[in-house]
Design a protein around this nucleic acid. Sequence first.
DNA 1: CTAACATTCAAACAGTCGTTTGAAACTAGC
DNA 2: GCTAGTTTCAAACGACTGTTTGAATGTTAG
Lengths: 259, 259
Amino acid sequence: MPAASRTRPATAERLLAAAERLFLAHGYDGTSSRMLTAAARVNLAAVSYHFGGKTGLFQSMLARRLDALHEERLALLDAYERVAGTMPLSCERILSALFVPALRLARDPKRGGADFLRLLGRAYVDPSPELRAFLSERYAPSIARFKDAFARALPDIAPRELSWRLHFMLGALAYTLAGTDAWRLIAALSQDETAKPTDDQLLLRRLAPFLIAGLQAPLPDLAGEDPIVSIADSRLARGAVNERSAPAVTTSRGARRVA
Amino acid sequence: MPAASRTRPATAERLLAAAERLFLAHGYDGTSSRMLTAAARVNLAAVSYHFGGKTGLFQSMLARRLDALHEERLALLDAYERVAGTMPLSCERILSALFVPALRLARDPKRGGADFLRLLGRAYVDPSPELRAFLSERYAPSIARFKDAFARALPDIAPRELSWRLHFMLGALAYTLAGTDAWRLIAALSQDETAKPTDDQLLLRRLAPFLIAGLQAPLPDLAGEDPIVSIADSRLARGAVNERSAPAVTTSRGARRVA
DNA sequence: CTAACATTCAAACAGTCGTTTGAAACTAGC
DNA sequence: GCTAGTTTCAAACGACTGTTTGAATGTTAG
């Protein structure tokens, strides 16, 4: 058992900090151990020594931030429910229990800063099966608590339907948080030069009404046979589907012949 | 200039098909050229020969499907607007112009099948800057057309606000489409065994009301100073933030000593 | 001071990465 | 049948991957 912090080795901390920056910027596969140790100004072997490997470092970094985040979220939700007594919480309140700890974290450079929000969004959509298993296993209870709260807040939404809507909500949230060039895209769409990396708080305050309205939306008509598609199927869109154009790709062989 | 299709070489097609499956399953970085050529039962050099490299193969595969998708989407949108005349389209109609071509594509195994929808969702959140640049550059005009349509459908939503809401919408959509274990997560949350890989059409029919309600949501109050946070700040959540627990990680060094 | 331990270090490990090579196998036109 | 061009092939390229090694250094306790 390694006495992790007799003299509180700065090496592990440096690695965790570098891991947050680099994994965020390049993803898990795109970040090498050598990039990490170089950025942390630390010997290559430190990754294996302190964290047992690259995946260990990744999970440690993630867990450190996420544990704190979920702890705070649940504490806030508990506090809200204690105040509300038997009354169900409003969607706004539940969302605020989700958002406020994330905002606090984003504003505290010592706990990851704004970068962590983007990392979190990135992690939610990462393909890696290990990561997905790690996340869902570790935080499923926390998510379930919030689902219960929403279920009480939205008694008209069937549990199955609610699960889907929470899924959609997580998607909008994760995508928004992960948005690397989201700012650029928004700016381009709105021809608005002033759309710089806006305050995270403003962003979430825009997102909240969107999500709440979505959660409370009228129930979908799941019966009937493909009404949406049938509307569109009436030969409206014919005539525009033409020959496939060859992929705009140059073969290296041709270039090699010249060079 | 390589005469791409004198005898219509099956090699390129095999590679494209394998690329769709593998890039979807493991992401760009997680898929090697050797995996691709092995799955396609094709020589390793074929990637460079036919597509100029791994990234060329990836972009060709993406472009082939996405060009067709956007073509169909725009054609459908045009058709809707032609029928509506000067009247603005409803949100439902515009969404259907977005969804229906995606559904058609998902149901046609010859054009990618359902896997492509997941790949598309994955691509939207991929960290790779090259991919993001490629996508936004190639399909910005198409997205702008849809934004205009939504702007006419939602005259009360300011352009800037609308840009954000479209961003949120894309997020929910991409996340939903990319959902690898979404089905598992939903099943776990709802204790519902029957939540298998549901029909894509049912999924989108659930998503539509969620998105439409979000788009039409009342405008957020962006003034005021942090009302959400201030509500939560009243010492409600104190007392639950305790000592950080050591990251659950075993160092290899300890294990090595034993072995 | 010394024994016991934790940590750091440069170097090397066996693999895999994407890409390139030059020759062999094809497929046409003549 | 021959030639010119396209496509496939096994093999190798150098660079990079995550991890391990054993010695060197630092730190604490007796």
